[in-house]
Design a protein around this nucleic acid. Structure first.
Length: 922
RNA sequence: ACGGAUGUGGCGGAAUUGGUAGACGCGCUAGACUUAGGAUCUAGUUCUGCAAAGAGUAAGGGUUCGAGUCCCUUCAUCCGUACCA
């Protein structure tokens, strides 16, 4: 058996690839391109565990394979380097986040290199680098200086909007806007500068508004959602309030329809497509205006079931609805304010817990049914949300279960309007049936009724058909230090964009990373920086984490360009990303924002594609295999996992480094947990066997396996191969270090085909046999097809089978073993590169080309037919492939091994599927 | 509650289009080598059964000459969303 010194080999070739820039892109764009990308990592301080590199190994294999196949491959790796952990660490220690981040990146890169993961040179961009975030700021300016023209469904410079306003006011203007009021050209022209700016802010794609934030008075800071657990801060457990605060928004809602439609163009997992569809949440319906008794205002509601309008028996407003104070009558004022107070006092947690409970209050006011003319009492209730539709509904208790529950609680009438509805049974939400109790809609089915009622509403100017989206505009600011500063200054309240020439606005150093206590970012304390000589003030918010990651895939194409964020020429060649691999946790955040930014840049001519990621694959999570010791309750005795049935035990996670094959090193355990140093262990065969639990790999569960240690012990080629062998890329699967020996054995066996244990080359120049060629070509075919469909877990066994066969055939022939190296190279690059050179080849094996499989060697002359009788396998018959069906049938009927089944019975039918199976029906 | 995914030996998994279920690996069993084995090699290993044979892909039903794969019903697990009118 050859001496496979992986440590020496792996280090050597990692250096070689780096120094020789083996994976540099080819600047002459005459090859077909392949752009492969991993999701932008945030370099956390904890380093990598074995679960992290799974997707990276997959992309590394594809990169190497595509290069061997003659593609010009771009496979970059940079870092999403702004973020909370580094800032929180800075608050605790005073270390500048840039220092921590840089250190973490270095560690990250070392670990990647150790695994043989190598990337296109010069692509290690960082979002926190001014040369990068200069362009993030530049893109923000594009958003700020744009509006969305719905007539041609694209973003345009704000100047075209101003021109329109100058000439026509809001007449004939179709724009994505939060502005409700029409304006004439004359009125526009008479506005002051500040008034104009205020008006335009309702059209800009980056604008300011107020949003509810998690304000923690004790910490004096605003917290991200993930920093809040159960209504208290994760750090310190202080109470968190929800208060409105000025924020920047990006008008992603303008793109809702395009973001939805273009999902059809993508080769993405259905689950992600579905999540994005739900997130965008398109629903068709109508808005209907209800007249109010004793008021001039109209109450506008949104419904997806206008057909049920004759079933309306009351109206419900969201508690925050602006009409609530207007409508509430004197007699009801007390009840309403008590209700509002009750809701405001409730924490987020209580609100979620109480979603099943019915609550609400009567305003004392009435709306008038547009067709019946009857009075409809108006309630407020928190089951109606201000943020969706118009914040008001027409309640149809017979056909909406929430309205039904509410009507029952408040003893309101329930009128069924669809045939076959039993109002004792609950709401009938079925969207089919014939209309009843509905005047001119009677006899129509639901679809017809919707069409008819909308016509009628439009004719009488009572409403119109309307599409709503659940999607909200995206908050684009954080009250934090470690993020991109905005290229914005304020003249009083009016935001003014800085010019592109002033970019980048560099994040200034601060004395303290601690919160200011006012809720503003630590930048607000830098009065010299904030206050400009002309009296203007800088924006002190910073951009959110997803700013830099919404366009990084473009910067990779042109990382050193100082004149433009990414040349169009390069985009034309490289975009879109051919394969994007990452976790499903970014399903609606990053992936939606990146699509949004791409479309926006496309509209302004800064991007050549509308969709950035053609194909997306989510790699599964590698789960931890925890070891559990079971302590009897109220006792200091541990019992084995096999004996816990029926007993009250406290499971304790044991550090997996203290066990071997689930057997616990009791002494080590006692040292690790001195609180158990006097514990008694019930043994089985002299050992304490721990229980096993498959769960998330995490430090707190003491089940983390470190890839560095695995590589140290088995080598990174083995590690890579094992990760791929574990199971399908997309699937969650548990890590079990024990299994790695099979893959390690395989690589040693493979190595020993080339070199003996004295390191002598075993390779001969003999001509291979047909069988040897057959195995080679079969392997080339199987492995390349498997890589193409990302089925790495099935490619690895093919190498194992090949190797076992070569050992059986005692084959050491160059004509077989040289091409197979190229096939193995993407998986075990160091080993393949080493043997490639030992066979006197140069330069790198990755400059070779992938062998083609020759069908001649895969053609068979015979096929061993499985013969079933009535579907049960009874025998196998080796038959030549050139037989006619009749000849096969004859051979089968007369086959001696089948006589005992066939004898004395008539054969009803013979099914012959060429090269598959023969089935006799008796 | 809704939407999505998954369910195959002791374990990870294979079976790409309806055609030999359990490839490959781990583990286990036996044997060999060995001072030793948690190293290596050889053989075996879905279950029941001495065997012949039978059963078998979460459960039940269906289509088919033939179903892990297609259809219907049910169950379990995981993920996502959460009063969206």
């Amino acid at each position: 058996m050859g001496k496979y010194n992986f440590q020496e080999i792996e280090k050597k070739w990692q250096q070689y690839w780096k120094n020789n820039k083996t994976f540099q892109i080819d600047p002459s764009n005459d090859k077909p391109k392949y752009y492969i990308l991993d999701m932008f990592p945030y370099p956390s301080g904890a380093g990598l565990h074995v679960g992290h590199p799974l997707g990276y190994i997959a992309t590394d294999i594809i990169k190497r394979y595509k290069k061997l196949k003659g593609f010009n491959v771009l496979h970059p790796m940079g870092f999403d380097a702004f973020g909370l952990p580094a800032e929180n660490y800075a608050i605790q220690t005073g270390t500048h986040p840039a220092v921590t981040t840089e250190k973490n990146i270095q560690r990250y890169q070392e670990q990647l290199e150790l695994l043989g993961l190598i990337y296109t040179p010069n692509t290690d961009i960082r979002t926190c680098d001014p040369s990068y975030y200069r362009w993030t700021q530049w893109i923000f300016l594009q958003f700020f200086n744009s509006w969305y023209n719905q007539k041609n469904q694209k973003a345009e410079p704000i100047t075209t909007l101003i021109q329109h306003l100058e000439n026509y006011g809001t007449d004939n203007l179709e724009a994505a806007t939060t502005n409700e009021k029409p304006l004439s050209a004359q009125e526009w022209r008479s506005l002051s500068y500040k008034e104009k700016e205020e008006f335009l802010s309702h059209y800009r794609l980056a604008y300011q508004s107020y949003a509810i934030v998690n304000w923690c008075p004790a910490l004096g800071t605003v917290l991200a959602n993930e920093e809040v657990k159960d209504g208290v801060s994760e750090r310190g457990g202080h109470p968190v309030e929800r208060i409105p605060m000025r924020q920047w928004f990006l008008r992603i809602t303008a793109y809702a329809e395009r973001l939805l439609q273009d999902l059809d163009l993508l080769d993405w997992p259905t689950s992600i497509i579905e999540m994005q569809k739900n997130w965008i949440g398109k629903s068709r319906g109508a808005i209907i205006n209800f007249a109010l008794q004793g008021h001039n205002e109209k109450l506008t509601i949104f419904t997806t079931r206008p057909d049920t309008i004759f079933g309306v028996t009351f109206m419900v407003l969201a508690p925050e609805h602006p009409l609530v104070p207007v409508l509430t009558t004197e007699t009801q004022r007390e009840e309403i304010s008590a209700y509002l107070q009750k809701i405001n006092a409730r924490s987020e947690r209580e609100r979620l817990a109480e979603t099943q409970k019915v609550s609400g209050a009567f305003t004392g006011a009435y709306a008038i049914h547009p067709f019946r003319g009857t009075l409809l009492p108006i309630y407020i209730a928190d089951y109606v949300l201000m943020g969706y539709g118009t914040g008001a509904i027409m309640a149809v208790p017979a056909h909406d279960s929430r309205d039904y529950v509410f009507a029952q609680f408040f003893k309101l009438p329930i009128i069924p309007v669809i045939e076959g509805t039993d109002i004792e049974q609950g709401a009938n939400e079925n969207k089919e049936g014939t209309l009843i109790n509905s005047d001119f809609l009677n006899g129509l089915n639901v679809t017809q009724a919707i069409e008819r009622i909308i016509n009628e509403l439009e004719r009488r100017k009572l409403g119109k058909s309307k599409i709503t989206y659940r999607l909200r505009d995206a908050i684009f600011s954080r009250q934090r230090y470690w993020g991109e500063p905005f290229p914005i200054v304020f003249d009083g309240d009016t935001p003014i964009a800085l010019s592109e020439k002033e970019l980048p606005i560099v994040l200034p150093p601060v004395q303290s990373y601690k919160p200011t206590g006012t809720g503003e970012s630590p930048l607000a304390a830098l009065t010299d920086w904030v206050n400009l000589p002309d009296g203007k003030k800088r924006e002190t918010n910073t951009m959110p984490g997803w700013a830099g990651s919404s366009w990084y895939f473009l910067r990779y194409l042109d990382p050193l360009n100082t004149d433009y964020f990414c040349s169009l020429e390069k985009q034309k060649y490289w975009m879109p990303v051919d394969l994007y691999i990452g976790g499903s946790e970014h399903a609606v955040g990053h992936l939606l924002y990146a699509r949004f930014w791409t479309k926006f840049l496309y509209d302004l001519g800064h991007c050549t594609v509308q969709e950035p990621f053609k194909k997306l694959v989510n790699q599964g999570m590698i789960q931890g295999r925890s070891n559990i010791a079971y302590k009897l309750k109220d006792s200091n005795t541990f019992i084995p996992a096999t004996q816990i049935e029926g007993k009250e035990v406290i499971p304790i996670h044991v550090d997996i480094n203290l066990t071997y094959e689930d057997r616990l090193d009791i002494e080590a355990f006692k040292q690790w947990r001195p609180d158990y140093k006097d514990a008694t262990f019930i043994l089985e065969n002299g050992e304490y066997i721990c229980g096993v639990q498959i769960e998330k790999m995490s430090k707190s569960l003491h089940n983390v396996v470190n890839p560095d240690e695995i590589c140290q012990k088995y080598g990174s080629d083995t590690f890579r191969l094992y990760e791929m062998f574990l199971g399908p890329l997309e699937q969650h699967k548990p890590w079990n270090t024990q299994g790695i020996s099979g893959v390690a054995n395989f690589l040693r066996k493979f190595y020993s085909l080339y070199l003996d244990d004295k390191d002598n080359l075993l390779i001969t120049e003999e001509e291979p046999t047909f069988e040897e060629y057959k195995w080679l070509h079969q392997t080339i075919k199987k492995v390349s097809e498997d890589i193409e469909r990302l089925s790495f877990n099935t490619a690895v066994p093919q190498f194992m089978i090949f190797t076992n066969e070569m050992h059986r055939l005692k084959c050491h022939k160059r004509a077989i073993l040289e091409p197979i190296l190229v096939v193995l190279a993407p998986f075990a690059p160091h080993l393949a590169e080493e043997l490639w050179h030992r066979l006197d080849n140069s330069p790198s094996i990755f400059e070779a080309s992938y062998p083609k499989w020759d069908p001649r060697y895969l053609e068979e002359t015979h096929f061993e037919y499985p013969v079933s009788i009535n579907g049960k396998l009874r025998a196998k018959l080796l038959l030549p492939l050139n037989l006619e069906k009749e000849e096969i049938e004859k051979a089968v009927i007369t086959a001696p091994e089948l006589q005992k089944y066939v004898q004395g019975q008539s054969i009803k039918k013979v099914i012959i599927v060429p090269q598959k199976i023969i089935n006799l029906v008796i």
